[in-house]
Nucleic acid binder design. Structure first.
Lengths: 269, 269
DNA sequence: GCATAATTCATACGTTCGTTTGAATAGTAG
DNA sequence: CTACTATTCAAACGAACGTATGAATTATGC
C-alpha cells in the first residue's frame, strides 16, 4: 500500500538528506487528483464521492489514488493538509507579529478575530490557496461525524486554537474564560456555516442579499463581502453582555418558550 | 415501491375520509426504524449509515425500510419530518402569541431569538421530541451537500424563516434589512455548529468548559446550558455596530492580515 | 544506452450497497 | 370461516464500492 511513499523513502535515502525535489510531491497526477477531490468532496461529501468519480474526472487511472495517497482516507487528509498547513502557520505568524508590535500589551479583540478569521477568509480570495471551493469544503467537513476526520482536525488545529484562546483571554479580560471558550465555539460555527453556504437562507432570501449589497460591491470578491459582514457580527457576539445567571432556585426560571403549548398537539406520555 | 403507502391509500379510501388510525402510522416497526435511524444518521451521517446497520439494530427485516418508507431517502425525510413539523408549527405558534400580546408593537430582539432558538433548544430537553440526538443530527445535516436534503430543508423551513425575518426587521429597525438577513444566517450557523458538537474545541478545551460551568449547573440539561450561553452571543451579534463601509475606492482598504506574508513560504505564481 | 526506479495502466477481487421479489404470516371485516 | 389486506421474512439481484496485482510504460542516474 502507498507505493509512492515507499518510492519516496528510497529516493530520500539515495539523495542522502537533501530535500526532495518539489517535482515529486507536485507531479501533475497528484495535484490533478487533489484539485478534483477538493471540488468533489465539497460538492458531494466524503462518503458521497467515489474514487471512480475522482479518477475519471481527473483523467488518471483508477489505481493512481491508492498509489499516491495510500487510501481514500489518506487522500482526504492530504486534500486538507496542503491547505491547512499554510493557513495555520500563517495564523500563528500573524499573531506573532501582532503581539510583537504590541510589546506585551493585550491585543484588541478585533485584531485577534481579524487575524484568525481574516486569514481564513483570505483563502477564499486566492485561488492558489484553494479559493471558495476549499472554504466551502472546510465548512462542511468541520461537522462531519467520521471519527478519523475529527481526530485529524483536532491535531491539525490544536496549536492554533490554544494560542488564539490565550490571546482572546487577554483581549477580553472582562469576560470569563469559560465564556470566551464557548464564544470561540460559536464564532467558529457562524463562520463554517456561512462559508459552507448550503443553507436554507441562500435558497429563500439569496436574492435580497445580493440585490441590496450588489450596488457598490460588484467588484468585491465573495470572501470579502462575507468578511465585512461576519466580523462585526463576531465582535458583537464576543463582547456581548454576560448572561445573567439565574438565582440558585433554578425552577421556573425558564424563559424557554412554553407559552403556547396548548396550541400544539397534545403530548403523549 | 413503498407498498405501505399504497396500502395506506387503499385504507383511506375504505375509511372514506375519516382520519387514519394512528396505530397504522405508529406501528412498532416504523418507530423502531425511525429511532434507530435518527441515532445512526447522527453518528455516521447519511451516506455512512447503511440500511443493514439500521435494520439489524432495529431488529426488523431488511426489507422493512423500503416497505414503510419507500427508499433510504424517504426514510431520512421521515426522520426529519416527524420532528420538524412539531418544531416549526410550534415556532409559528409562539411567534403568533408574542405578536398578539404585543398588540402591533414590534417585539424585542431577545423575544424573537428566544422564540426561534429557544423553541429549538427545548427539543434537546425533551426526549419525546428527539432530544440531543435529533439536535445533533439536525446541526450536522444542515450543512450536508446532498441535493435532496437541501431542497427538503428549504421547503420545510420556508414559512418559518419568512415570518421570523419580518419579525426581526421590525425588532431591529436600525439595522438594514440585508444586514439582518446576513446575521440570521450567521446565527443559524452558530447554533447548528454548537449543537452538532463534533468540533475541535470540545476535544481540546472541553474539560475547561465543563469544569468551570459545572459548579452550580450540574443539574441543568445540556440544552439549557447551551441556551444560556448561546442567546447572549446571538443577541450581541444581531445588534452589533454596523460595518463601516469602505470608501468607494476599495483598493488597499484591506484589513485582512497581509502583515507577515514575508514569513510564510513564498507564493508560486 | 543500460539498469533501475517511478509511474501508469487494464483488469480483477471480494464486499457491501440499496432495492426487489414472491412466498409466508398476522390481522381484520363481513 | 372466509376473503382480503397488511406486514414480515429469507433470499437474491445487479451495481457500485475501495483496493490489490502484475505487466507495461516512462523517467532518471551513471
Amino acid at each position: 500500500m502507498n507505493y509512492a511513499l515507499l518510492c519516496t523513502v528510497a529516493t530520500l535515502r539515495k539523495l542522502d538528506g537533501r530535500p526532495m525535489p518539489d517535482a515529486k510531491l507536485n507531479s501533475d497526477t497528484r495535484v490533478r487528483i487533489l484539485d478534483v477531490s477538493e471540488r468533489q468532496f465539497m460538492a458531494h461529501g466524503y462518503e458521497g464521492t467515489s474514487m471512480r468519480m475522482i479518477t475519471s474526472m481527473a483523467k488518471v487511472n483508477l489505481a493512481a489514488v491508492n498509489y499516491h495517497f495510500g487510501s481514500k482516507e489518506g487522500l482526504l487528509r492530504e486534500v486538507f493538509r496542503r491547505r491547512l498547513t499554510w493557513l495555520n502557520s500563517e495564523r500563528l505568524a500573524v499573531l506573532d507579529a501582532l503581539e510583537e508590535r504590541a510589546k506585551g500589551a493585550p491585543l484588541k479583540p478585533s485584531q485577534v478575530l481579524e487575524a484568525f478569521f481574516g486569514t481564513l477568509l483570505r483563502i477564499g480570495e486566492d485561488e492558489s490557496l484553494g479559493g471558495m471551493t476549499f472554504l466551502r469544503l472546510l465548512g462542511r467537513t468541520l461537522t462531519d461525524p467520521a471519527e478519523f476526520i475529527r481526530t485529524f482536525f483536532a491535531t491539525e488545529y490544536a496549536e492554533v486554537i490554544e494560542r488564539y484562546k490565550l490571546a482572546l483571554f487577554r483581549a477580553v479580560p472582562d469576560v470569563p474564560k469559560a465564556e470566551i471558550v464557548w464564544r470561540l465555539h460559536f464564532m467558529l460555527g457562524a463562520m463554517s456555516y456561512a462559508i459552507a453556504g448550503t443553507d436554507i437562507l441562500r435558497v429563500i432570501t439569496g436574492h435580497e442579499m445580493s440585490d441590496i449589497s450588489g450596488k457598490e460591491e460588484g467588484t468585491k470578491s465573495e470572501a470579502r463581502r462575507l468578511s465585512e459582514r461576519l466580523m462585526p457580527f463576531l465582535l458583537g457576539g464576543l463582547r456581548a453582555a454576560l448572561p445573567q445567571f439565574a438565582d440558585s432556585s433554578n425552577r421556573q426560571q425558564a424563559p424557554l418558550a412554553k407559552t403556547v403549548r396548548s396550541k400544539s398537539q397534545e403530548k403523549k406520555k
